[in-house]
């Protein structure tokens, strides 16, 4: 299962990176979203998969899965939500003002 997950994470990263490198702002946001999903899965995978019960002390089972990656990911999910929101607003406002969402045309003033 870990091997499969590793390949899946790799694929998600490839797709995400490709999208991030494109010229359109919306695609970049999509790419970042996918990359963050991939990172979450990567962290979870590196903690070991399906090795025990959920990290709740009540369940009388032999062991529980590593809770540390889960705490990390929980933080990451929430932050990712905020970042996505910020990027979305940034993109739609810059489209409103500059009438383009092509990153190559949003390069700023060369004199600066």
């Amino acid at each position: 299962m870990e091997t499969i997950m590793a390949c899946l994470v790799g694929l998600l990263f490839t797709i995400g990176t490709y999208l991030v490198l494109s010229r359109q702002m919306l695609r970049i946001i999509f790419g970042l979203s996918i990359i963050s999903h991939a990172v979450n899965l990567l962290i979870l995978t590196s903690g070991g998969l399906k090795t025990g019960s959920a990290p709740l002390l009540d369940e009388k089972m032999a062991g529980f899965t590593d809770p540390l990656p889960q705490a990390l990911i929980l933080t990451a999910i929430v932050i990712n939500f905020a970042v996505t929101a910020l990027l979305l607003v940034l993109s739609y406002r810059s489209y409103q003002i500059f009438k383009t969402d092509d990153m190559e045309r949003l390069r700023g003033n060369p004199d600066e």
Binding site: N40, L44, L49, K50, G52, S53, A54, P55, L56, F64, T65, Q70, I73, L74, I77, V78
Partner: peptide, 11 residues
């Protein structure tokens, strides 16, 4: 399926 109920809810 990876036993992370908190994450599943949040996500």
């Amino acid at each position: 399926i990876f036993r992370a109920p908190d994450l599943a809810l949040t996500q």
